[in-house]
Design a protein around this nucleic acid. Structure first.
Lengths: 97, 97
DNA sequence: ATAATTTGGTTTATATTATAAACTTCTCTA
DNA sequence: TAGAGAAGTTTATAATATAAACCAAATTAT
């Protein structure tokens, strides 16, 4: 009846990050921060979690002399996101009006 | 960009309960328990929260001599659910494939 | 030159939340 | 009448999200 919802994705900020990365393919930390409205600390933690799960790839480089953290979604992450959306539909597609 | 997600609804079990009640209009505790696979304790707590928020109505009656807890969605709950679904879409409708 | 501010983050502490375990009350049945 | 089962509730714990505090380097102001 109800499919389980991947707890890693069923969290507002992490879902927003994944959502961004799916449409953008690549995004820098400050951009994600601005788009999501998250605090840097919170974003840092959630990015770590997504990265630890292999859902995103994080590359720490330099842009001139400033540090620059770039995030990309991985195939695993994309799959997880798609599965999550499918599962969610079991909760939403209830009323066939 | 990303609409905030009602934290009361953005929780697996509560979402499942609301989802059930939207299609069923009325449901008894044991039925909800069975459909969601939740433990009675967890379900009891989550039903209380939905009820406290006015999202559902809980009626405690008797079925013969056994207690019988019946739940119904309220207009407020229905509205909240619809808003939640709309908000969710801001996270999902990203890739227009 | 050096003090203050900003940028780009990380670490840590707190507060909330979800969840299950333990408990209660009543009924049925062996 | 003892034990099991149904229907929940309360309470304790473990996980989680989140922001506050912090750090380092670079830029700007004095």
């Amino acid at each position: 009846m109800f499919k389980p919802l991947d707890p890693l994705l069923h969290a507002e900020l992490r879902l927003a990050v994944m959502s961004l990365l799916i449409s953008a393919e690549e995004a820098e930390f400050p951009y994600i921060k601005e788009q999501t409205g998250a605090t840097a600390g919170n974003l840092s933690v959630q990015i770590d979690k997504l990265s630890a799960a292999g859902y995103i790839e994080v590359e720490k480089t330099f842009k001139g002399k400033k540090p620059c953290t770039v995030c990309r979604i991985t195939p695993v992450g994309l799959k997880a996101f798609e599965d999550y959306v499918k599962a969610l539909k079991s909760y939403l597609n209830v009323k066939k009006t």
